[in-house]
């Protein structure tokens, strides 16, 4: 058993400069959760299928379980904790709760990240666009119906604010 050398990775997570001594193939999700203790990012499958680990990397929605540390150097990462800080999306988060888009909650942070990404690109999505935007986020509790309602409601509200 031989280990490769650790490398130094610098990036920003939720606007905080971070530096890691880690193996190049360490997963971004492990840096976020184990090293930075942002445990709002969840692991459901480890292979990019469930979307629970979704974060924004340089503004793009990614599965943090599929990004190796070596590709995180210099990146700007936003997790669910970073979204809360921004306040901009509190109406979205409230809608998720009010409309019943949250049940067990394990998919919720990833679902919110996917929605934030959608609304950044398209503030007034159709139902089909919403379905496509969250198709990479598996929810086993809600049947998605109340999540659509929450997002549609939030679009109206966020739109009104703009």
């Amino acid at each position: 058993m031989s280990n490769s050398a650790k490398i130094t990775i610098s990036c920003r997570i939720n606007q905080r400069p971070c530096s890691f001594e880690t193996y190049p193939m360490t997963r971004l999700i492990d840096l976020i959760r184990d090293d930075e203790h942002f445990t709002g990012t969840k692991e459901g499958c480890g292979e990019g299928e469930c979307g629970a680990c979704s974060v924004l990397m340089n503004g793009e929605l990614v599965n943090s379980c599929l990004v190796p540390a070596v590709q995180v150097n210099g990146a700007d990462i936003i997790t669910i904790e970073g979204i809360i800080r921004e306040n901009k999306f509190s109406a979205l988060q409230e809608a998720f709760v009010d409309f019943g888009g949250v049940q067990c909650g394990i998919c919720t942070p990833g679902m919110v990240m996917a929605t934030v990404y959608l609304l950044g690109k398209n503030p007034n999505p159709t139902e089909a666009e919403i379905r496509e935007a969250i198709a990479g986020n598996i929810c086993r509790c809600t049947g998605y119906t109340k999540i659509f309602e929450a997002i549609q409601h939030a679009c109206g509200k966020l739109g009104a604010l703009q």
Partner: peptide
Amino acid sequence: IGAIAIQNR
């Protein structure tokens, strides 16, 4: 392909 987070990478 996949879904959006996969298409992005």
